[in-house]
Design a protein around this nucleic acid. Sequence first.
DNA 1: CAGGATCCAATTGTGGATCCGG
DNA 2: CCGGATCCACAATTGGATCCTG
Lengths: 225, 225
Amino acid sequence: MTALRRRSPPRTEAELLARARALAGHSLFEIACALRAPGDPEGGLHGKGQAGALLEAALGAPLTSGETHDFPELQVELKTVPLQKNGVPRESTYVCHFALDRAPTMEWSTSWARAKLHRVLFVTTSDSRTPWAERMVHGATLWTPDAEEEAVLRSDFEELVGLAAQGKVDDLVAARGQVMQVRPKAAHGGIRTTLQTEEGELIATVPRGFYLRARFVASILQRSF
Amino acid sequence: MTALRRRSPPRTEAELLARARALAGHSLFEIACALRAPGDPEGGLHGKGQAGALLEAALGAPLTSGETHDFPELQVELKTVPLQKNGVPRESTYVCHFALDRAPTMEWSTSWARAKLHRVLFVTTSDSRTPWAERMVHGATLWTPDAEEEAVLRSDFEELVGLAAQGKVDDLVAARGQVMQVRPKAAHGGIRTTLQTEEGELIATVPRGFYLRARFVASILQRSF
DNA sequence: CAGGATCCAATTGTGGATCCGG
DNA sequence: CCGGATCCACAATTGGATCCTG
């Protein structure tokens, strides 16, 4: 994403939400044009993950790294959710990395997962079946899990982390968890991390991440629009 | 199944189980030969549902109709479960018909489903990928749900019947139920039954039945062998 | 038909592998 | 690398439709 201008950070949630809603009805192409530096003709537009990066720039998210929110001041996370024509996401939504070897000391209340999910700006777009230039921003909503959602998330988290903590990696499959699941997250195929069982045996695994099931995100969005 | 001799009914569970275990290691072809009347050369052998009928005859189940057990004296139900090479059933196991219109007055404790599931003789065979004549009886086990299994079955039953009782036929999908599910059961395509909502509207549906999920049956069998 | 199963097209879910830019 | 998503082959599940026989 060469030479994209980046807006100044929003000062309040209301401002952030207003900016996001102002993007609704515009295509990614339009948004990219508006941000492109005057002399830059094209810039890398299409490609996986570029919609997210573009919207971050358009909304004024600072370039961050490590365990931070997209909008650190507001403690808000941005999630770009591509929707199929029927209005349902095709894929699960990535939450964060899951360091299996640290499972024994992880707790929901202090977890990175909970921090990220505590306040989320969902921005919906057309999905990648529609050509890049025509992909539209559909809408935006700010979400905080209600008591029931928080309870289910916590119970899923505890189940999944519990399995990892016991070294039961073979039970740590995507089918586990009502609304949040664990799936592979490998930047380059075949990278292996290792962890130890209680009995001390070493297990090689693929790196993992937490994901929200598409069903769950669909239900959140449905109630918000 | 023309001219199959039918053994006399077993007098005890032990006798029934012994007979079933005696069939293990034999092919359906052998079993059919042994039961065939002396002059009958072939008899309708293959075809859907014929393994079940053959084993009923071989074990001495009387020909019954209506809401009875396969072995009425013993109150035992026979279920023939074909297993894939990996030892897991490919399909769910039919339990009994589900008359949606009678849901409002159905209770687990007095239900046909519970009566049938209270004592089951599972006989495992090769599945229908292997040619009929070579299909083997693998083993047999008598099962009664333990407290935990009974609780899950009851809760599934109550959920499913509850949905039907409320006329929520659209929610009565195969994904409902941890171990028992409701699926279509139509003898001839397109038969419709109707039922009424609380508000009196008529809903046309396909006939349904209760089924045990393949996973559940697999777990029962795994612990029994 | 009822009871006993089986078949099967199509949808959904799983388990990774891959791509991009800073 | 890392975070942001996407892609995709394959497996499992669904929602019926079909078949046989007494």
